[in-house]
């Protein structure tokens, strides 16, 4: 049993400590926006933020996390108002099937928090999530549009 801080709320996970965070979020907390794609940190569909860092939740166990670490999922990212990444994704119709896009947006939001004005090469290198529909060209455009719109852009 572990207590986690997910989207600003303390949540007790009634499961084994070796349960991956992904499955705790999906099956114990009931937030299914975070997706399973591979289970081995390859595809990024399960990306969440842990203290602001894009993290592949399928390979982090709940036992390895503490209550002081702030976990944010897609449901938390746009809870108050849509994140600029979500707005850019809507404006450019980035998503095709959409399954990987939550992870893409979480990875992109974390990148922009760290690097408000990334170059094309930085985006290409840092967004390593898999999309099988092939939305990469619009993902790249979406990150740049969101960067241009970030409110606290310096």
């Amino acid at each position: 049993m572990a207590t986690l801080n997910i989207n600003g709320k303390a949540v007790t996970i009634e499961g084994e400590d070796d349960t991956p965070l992904l499955w705790a979020i999906r099956d114990h907390v009931g937030l299914t926006g975070t997706k399973y794609g591979c289970g081995i940190a390859q595809c990024g569909a399960c990306t969440v933020h842990v203290d602001g860092v894009a993290t592949r939740s399928c390979v982090v166990t709940v036992g390895a996390l503490g209550e002081e670490q702030k976990i944010v999922t897609i449901e938390g990212l746009g809870a108050e108002r849509p994140h600029p990444v979500q707005e850019a994704w809507a404006e450019l119709d980035v998503a095709q099937c959409g399954y990987c896009q939550v992870g893409m947006m979480m990875a992109s939001a974390a990148l922009l928090a760290r690097n408000p004005n990334p170059s094309d090469d930085e985006i290409r290198a840092e967004i390593t999530n898999i999309c099988r529909c092939g939305t990469y060209q619009r993902v790249l455009a979406g990150v740049k549009l969101a960067a241009a719109r970030m409110p606290n852009r310096g």
């Binding site: 926006g33 997706k35 959409g98 896009q101 939550v102």
Partner: peptide, 21 residues
């Protein structure tokens, strides 16, 4: 025109086959 089926893909609320409860 923009797709009709985008909004719930962007906030995580779309229920795919694996998400059903």
């Amino acid at each position: 025109l923009k797709r009709l089926d985008t909004r719930d893909k962007l906030d995580g609320t779309l229920v795919y086959g694996v998400d059903l409860k």
